[in-house]
Computed example of a mutant assay.
Amino acid sequence: MDHSKHIPLRTDEISAANLDGANVYGPDDNHIGDVVHTDGAGHGTNVIVDVGGFLGIGAKRVSLPVSQLNFMRDENGKAHATTTMTKDQLKDLPEYQD
């Protein structure tokens, strides 16, 4: 997927309504997780991501600062994110507890 043509989300668009369910892609452009929840609003937001697994089964839930992700919309308007972190790096993070 060529993210260079995708439109970055503005700070005021960083919200659960826009981010929940967004795919997360790693540095090799492989799908590495999905946003399942956001905590807070704006720059202080933490994003909860399910990493690995299949259809949510066997996934590990981790918390990332929004600054670790680049959110954008594809040509169809669907929000997604990229990160420089790999799936293994995300799996090494502490598990998020509600």
Score class of each variant (00 low, 15 high):
76 N>D: 09
3 H>R: 14
4 S>F: 14
10 R>E: 13
88 D>S: 12
92 D>L: 11
79 A>L: 04
55 L>W: 12
89 Q>D: 12
83 T>A: 06
50 D>W: 00
86 T>L: 04
48 I>V: 12
6 H>T: 06
63 S>D: 09
55 L>P: 03
32 I>N: 00
94 P>Q: 13
35 V>L: 05
52 G>H: 03
9 L>N: 05
89 Q>I: 08
6 H>R: 03
44 G>W: 09
78 K>P: 02
1 M>L: 07
2 D>C: 06
27 P>L: 12
14 I>P: 00
96 Y>H: 15
41 A>Q: 15
61 R>Q: 13
53 G>R: 12
57 I>W: 14
18 N>T: 06
37 H>S: 09
91 K>Y: 06
45 T>Q: 08
33 G>Y: 03
44 G>F: 11
28 D>S: 05
34 D>T: 15
16 A>S: 14
28 D>K: 07
46 N>W: 07
55 L>Q: 12
62 V>T: 03
98 D>I: 07
67 S>W: 10
90 L>W: 00
69 L>T: 01
96 Y>Q: 08
58 G>I: 02
19 L>I: 04
17 A>I: 06
40 G>V: 06
85 M>T: 00
61 R>I: 05
32 I>M: 01
84 T>A: 13
46 N>M: 10
34 D>W: 12
33 G>I: 03
13 E>W: 01
44 G>M: 09
10 R>S: 12
89 Q>S: 10
23 N>R: 11
69 L>C: 05
6 H>E: 04
47 V>G: 01
57 I>F: 15
79 A>P: 01
47 V>N: 01
